[in-house]
């Protein structure tokens, strides 16, 4: 599959040193390894010539990048065991679709370990995985799954959309003494933006505005945030665009403040619709600010079917900036009061 064809799609216009998303991840890992000898990376093909799409290449400590057999479940337990006994592992997967093989360890061990022992254990474990569709890869090589993982108590789920956030959130995830699932969208790898050279962290649970406006709140994580930004800029939409940056913990106040102001909410989520992130945000607003929804709340997600392989279907399956813009315009044009929840 022509990985190289995923050309840079968008860059955030900011001052400062420009770095790609992939290089921002690489720099975070490199700096963390240099700072702390306990930080190591482990994963199937993490140490090969492709270096998980470049994010593992040219590190100062290649001796701390360990390859593994095709044994995701056992290796998750191995990483957890190392985390419980003094190391800070980063377990890496080329695709999130391989994580379900490790579902036992993630569900029953990793996410539970801290709470199950009265909050006493330190679990400094980061699981990195690349999400998103490829190119006719079909149902088993194109999933997102952040909603499914966020469902598990005890596991944070992080979804950076910009290079700056990729570095700051990854450093934060490595620094924490609790397990973090760090999901990187493969279509963002080549995107560029300003990234500070020094080490810095971005706290989990703090979203950000990517654009300010008064007529509609869009909440969109990961690639959906960038596509939504593109939609707003290309169509000059009056939108408050929130990138939550982390699915869990969720920046509830940021979302509620915005919706109370705009009275309209669209959640754009490149994941499955049922019991997912989009539903969670709608539930949040229905619970906490139902009076604010003057003109309806909607979600835009994948259809509730597995990803098809054929190109024509695959392109239809994934929302894109044009479809986001069309949906946003339709919502904005609705008179407030129509379709209100209360």
């Amino acid at each position: 599959m022509p990985w190289s064809r995923f050309e840079k799609q968008w860059s955030i216009q900011e001052e400062g040193r420009i770095l790609s998303y992939k290089d921002a991840l690489r720099e975070a890992i490199d700096q963390a390894m240099c700072l702390d000898p306990k930080v190591f990376a482990i994963g199937l093909d993490a140490d090969d010539c492709y270096g998980v799409y470049g994010s593992m290449l040219n590190l100062s400590h290649p001796e701390r990048v360990l390859g593994t057999p095709i044994s995701e479940n056992a290796m998750t337990g191995v990483a957890l065991g190392a985390a419980l006994t003094g190391m800070r592992p980063i377990h890496i997967h080329m695709r999130v679709d391989f994580l379900p093989v490790a579902m036992d360890q993630i569900t029953n061990y990793v996410s539970k370990w801290k709470a199950m022992f009265g909050g006493k254990p330190k679990v400094p474990l980061v699981i990195r995985a690349v999400v998103g569709r490829g190119w006719g890869c079909g149902a088993q090589h194109s999933q997102t799954l952040h909603g499914m993982f966020a469902h598990l108590p005890g596991l944070s789920v992080v979804t950076p959309a910009t290079p700056r956030d990729a570095k700051g959130l990854l450093l934060q995830a490595i620094a924490l003494d609790e397990p973090v699932l760090f999901l990187e969208h493969r279509w963002l790898y080549k995107n560029e933006g300003a990234v500070p050279e020094e080490m810095y962290t971005i706290p989990l649970g703090k979203g950000q505005y990517l654009r300010r406006g008064d007529s509609l709140t869009i909440v969109a994580p990961s690639l959906a945030a960038i596509h939504s930004l593109q939609a707003c800029e290309e169509h000059d939409l009056d939108v408050d665009l929130i990138d939550p940056r982390t699915i869990k913990p969720l920046d509830r106040e940021l979302i509620l403040d915005s919706v109370r102001r705009t009275g309209r909410l669209l959640v754009v989520d490149y994941d499955s619709p049922v019991c997912g992130f989009a539903s969670e945000v709608l539930a949040l607003v229905a619970e906490e600010a139902p009076e604010a929804l003057l003109a309806g709340a909607q979600k835009m997600t994948f259809p509730d079917v597995p990803m098809p392989a054929s190109g024509v279907l695959e392109r239809r399956y994934y929302p894109d900036p044009d479809r986001i813009a069309a949906k946003a315009k339709a919502m904005i044009s609705r008179v407030k009061g129509e379709g209100a929840l209360v």
Binding site: I70, P100, V101, G136, C137, G138, H141
Partner: peptide, 23 residues
Amino acid sequence: SYGGSMHVYDPEHGIHGSSAIVG
């Protein structure tokens, strides 16, 4: 066309689907 190269199906010839998750 829902499968692509990695997912073939032909029950008449004893192929009840193939999988791309190794193992």
